[in-house]
Design a binder for these strands. Structure first.
Length: 417
DNA sequence: TCTGGGGTCCTAGGACCC
DNA sequence: TCTGGGGTCCTAGGACCC
């Protein structure tokens, strides 16, 4: 364990909303929401002026509008976000190569090797904040502590636009009064379960008996207890490879006709399989998710004998799983979302060995199989790379492109494979 | 008038193997 | 004829994070 507060967590404040205010001065100082509208959709990010009214990311637009009548809804300039965030990460990289980016707008740094160059962690945090403000124009909050968990909590406490250093020896005084919900891994459900047992602060959690927490929450309870006791062994590590790749599409309320299901799944499969092929990867387990009106959702999955990265094969497997999920329902419920995810990932050999599906197998007459599909996918990938994403596509996928979320936004949330 | 899209990890039961 | 114990994989569901 490092002996100084040499783990930093740097987190851009209300990132999407701050970028909009940076790009359009008329929005500065005003409550704004990126995404959503007073009639529907969800708010992706809220400015601090909007947060003061209780508006939060993930909230339905109509609720946000009710909480804050003066709220301005702006369409996101999604293509601008990634490059700006990348410039911030470059600034972090100037301090140390030990940067672990955990999302588009936040990262951990291990600065133990940088203190002799830049001074103590507090000075490094101040330097980062100054440079990001001057060179990118955005506010970034920084927490510094001996562990990752504490550094992350400190950056949340520092917001907005602040710096909090938890000096070694002062951890308990810092942690004990904080609400448990500030801890990494405590969401609404866990918060409620803990509250029912009178556990409201991190200090309460640290004082609680470990075995009771494990009975209540399983192994995560043990982990949580350790974090409350400030035992966090995790190191700053440059990011690992993705374990799954997926795509989803919200549909409104729709009747799940075979045509609709086929067309949406083609679109999703093309995105997922295309990303896999672009990285020479493939996966054996295909999982679909179907959400019904009322937010109830089911998943169905199948592990194949060989990994897939072919759009057509993925579409067919997904279609069969969705059919199965729909057949398991009573009546004919409307669906509101379809999703495909591929896991059990492996490197894809240069020649794809794709085994036929287990029976019963709905191969349609004349459909290409195995290496023919592989060649078809590769040539379509090449055409898209040259002429644009919509240049070519499988018929149902091209027909199925009805509005939806901009690709720029999808890419923001993606992990590198 | 229920609410996006991308992920991670954990649990529990059953199948199967040694 | 019934019986031990451990390990791995698969499937479905759920909590959580940004």
């Amino acid at each position: 364990m490092p002996d100084g507060a040499t783990i930093l967590h740097a987190d851009l404040d209300a990132f999407y909303a701050s970028v909009e205010q940076l790009l359009d001065p008329a929005l500065r100082g005003r409550p704004i929401a990126v995404g959503g509208s007073p009639s529907g959709g969800v708010v992706l990010a809220a400015s601090y002026e909007a947060k003061a009214f209780g508006v939060q990311g993930g909230m339905p637009g109509w609720r946000a509008a009710r909480l804050c009548p003066d709220l301005t809804f702006v369409r996101g300039s999604f293509a601008r976000y990634q490059p700006l965030a990348d410039r911030v990460m470059d600034i972090l990289g100037d301090v140390t190569p030990l940067v672990q980016r955990i999302s588009v707008d936040e990262a951990f740094l291990d600065v133990s090797g940088a203190v002799h160059l830049f001074g103590p962690p507090a000075s490094i945090g101040a330097l980062i904040r100054r440079r990001v403000r001057a060179e990118v124009g955005l506010a970034i909050s920084v927490g510094a502590a001996r562990t990752k968990h504490l550094a992350k909590v400190a950056s949340q406490v520092a917001k907005p636009d602040g710096l909090v250093v938890v000096e070694p020896g002062h951890e308990r005084a810092f942690l004990d009064p904080l609400p448990v919900a500030l801890m990494w891994g405590v969401g609404p459900v866990t918060e409620r379960q803990l509250a029912e047992r009178g556990i409201r602060t991190v200090g309460d959690l640290a004082a609680a008996p470990g075995p009771m927490l494990e009975r209540l929450l399983g192994r995560p309870g043990g982990t949580l207890h350790a974090l409350a006791l400030d035992e966090d062994p995790r190191r700053v590590a440059t990011s690992s490879r993705a374990r799954s790749v997926g795509a989803q599409s919200a549909l409104g309320r729709r009747d799940p006709t075979p045509e609709l299901v086929r067309s949406v799944l083609s679109h999703l499969a093309e995105r997922v399989a295309g990303r896999l092929r672009a990285k020479d990867r493939a996966g054996r387990t295909v999982t679909v998710r179907v959400r019904f009106a009322g937010m109830r959702a089911v998943t169905r999955s199948l592990t194949l004998a060989a990994p897939v990265s072919s759009t057509l094969t993925l579409t067919e497997v997904a279609e069969r799983l969705v059919r199965q999920a729909l057949d398991d329902q009573d009546g004919d419920p409307e669906i509101t979302l379809l999703a495909i995810s591929v896991s059990n990932l492996a490197a894809q050999p240069s020649i794809q060995l794709e085994l036929p599906l287990p029976p019963p197998d709905p191969w349609r007459p004349g459909s290409a199989t195995g290496s023919a599909r592989w060649a078809l996918d590769r040539s379509m990938d090449a055409a898209r790379a040259r002429f644009g994403k919509d240049a070519v596509g499988y018929l149902p996928a091209t027909l199925g492109r009805t509005g939806g979320v901009p690709d720029d936004l999808r890419e923001l949330a993606q992990r590198d494979l």
